[in-house]
Design a protein around this nucleic acid. Sequence first.
RNA 1: GUCCCCAUCGUCUAGAGGCCUAGGACACCACCCUUUCAAGGUGGCGACACGGGUUCGAAUCCCGUUGGGGACGCCA
Length: 468
Amino acid sequence: MIVTRFAPSPTGFLHIGGARTALFNWLFAKHHGGEFRLRIEDTDRKRSTQEAVDAIFAGMKWLGLNWDGDAVSQFERRDRHAEAARQLLDAGLAYHCYCTPEELTEMREKARAEGSARLYDGRWRDRDPADAPAGIAPVIRLKAPLTGETVIDDKIQGEVKVSNEQLDDMILLRADGTPTYMLAVVVDDHDMEITHVVRGDDHLTNTFRQAQLYQALGWDLPVFGHMPLLHGSDGAKLSKRHGALGVEAYRDMGILPEAMNNYLLRLGWSHGDDEIISRDQAIEWFDLDGVGKSAARFDMAKLESLNAHYIRHADNSHLVSLVLPDLKNALDGSLSDDTETRLLRGMPGLKDRAKTILELVENAKIYAYARPIPINDKAAKILDGEGRRMIEHTRPRLGDVTPWTQQEIEQMVRVVAEELGAKLGNIAQPLRAALTGSNVSPGIFEVMEVLGRDETLGRLEDALSGDV
RNA sequence: GUCCCCAUCGUCUAGAGGCCUAGGACACCACCCUUUCAAGGUGGCGACACGGGUUCGAAUCCCGUUGGGGACGCCA
């Protein structure tokens, strides 16, 4: 069975790039009928807080990426990591190193100056343990192969190799006895029976070292797939500095999780010319061979375009439930009692006109206002002189419209327009201004139907009386 | 500096030697529809980084150059 995992470190939120990694792993597992696991890489105690872990859970949940079993805490497995290091020590495949930080810095500088890749010179590698200086706690280093090469058969990048002369003896266990990342990932991935490690490209060079570790431990390598990184609009790796946001920031911008999933999926993966891809379709189609090799830039405009599509196709009552809280917030006390029912009926006209839920809220205000409604500058201008005259002529005739439907209303207004020798637009625009307080809105006859006859006549009266 | 990876329209991508006069999507522009704005429809602008090979034939294969990115911590 195929088992994948997502292993974020808790940094305060679910990073957008991490979300994509999680999605790919989730999809890959689902496609193959396998399992998807979650592991929190919280060994850096300074950075790990419960809030940060919760933020990851919340982000995953929002995206609908459920994981199998309980999330694993890497920190809680530190004894097992140390045990693996000791095992290597006993087998003579690792050794104690007593170098001080100062010595290491010196070595590093020297190596750089000489153009050498080996930053640690291996000075304790074959030294007699009896030479150990007193009072210095040693680290444990892997006795890595000095010659030959390490080859990775990467399912996304292809065959990648490096000469072992480039790799020095990495630290496995720190002086304080805690495991390093390299040790922890390898031990955890092995113990969690991860079969496929799909992660960002930035781990590609780490993989060589991890492969050496697997070898020393006598374990089989999982299958690796290194996906291209997500870049900011400036072309550099997405980071906090580059405006990389947590997934919840996009939720707050009014992005739907469906749109986010679809967008993230298409960043670095494709299935021919398909753009709009449902989750079921994604599960059916997703595989590693569809993943590209080059980095992709994040493009908000395309995300919004996808979002607009998902809003347009979303269930009306679902959209109402998303919009209502924000609307109450924005309008506070001046919310009409009829808001919810109006929203439900007006949603078809509203949802075609919004790229985000935030815009939807803004546009939905016309159905939430209690009389008298606010009139913006452009609408006020339309209501001057001629526009006002049109409403004066039209309003009385509205009482005769039966039934009160969009079609009947339009028919009546057309008759009035003809009588006045006016174009339909000459009446529609003033009606819009008076009824919505704006120069932009859904079809005005639809708005009238949703508002109902009483509210419509009332708002028109407000406009005529100047009581706005 | 050393090592690793990448390279098709502004952006995301299709393309696995002839189907390519390089296709789609977003963005942009124009037109149509039209009561405004959207949506929708039609059309337009717009790319194989460069140089060498290999081949009858290269966006596709090889080499180099250039450009971009990543990794080089007792961080993860």
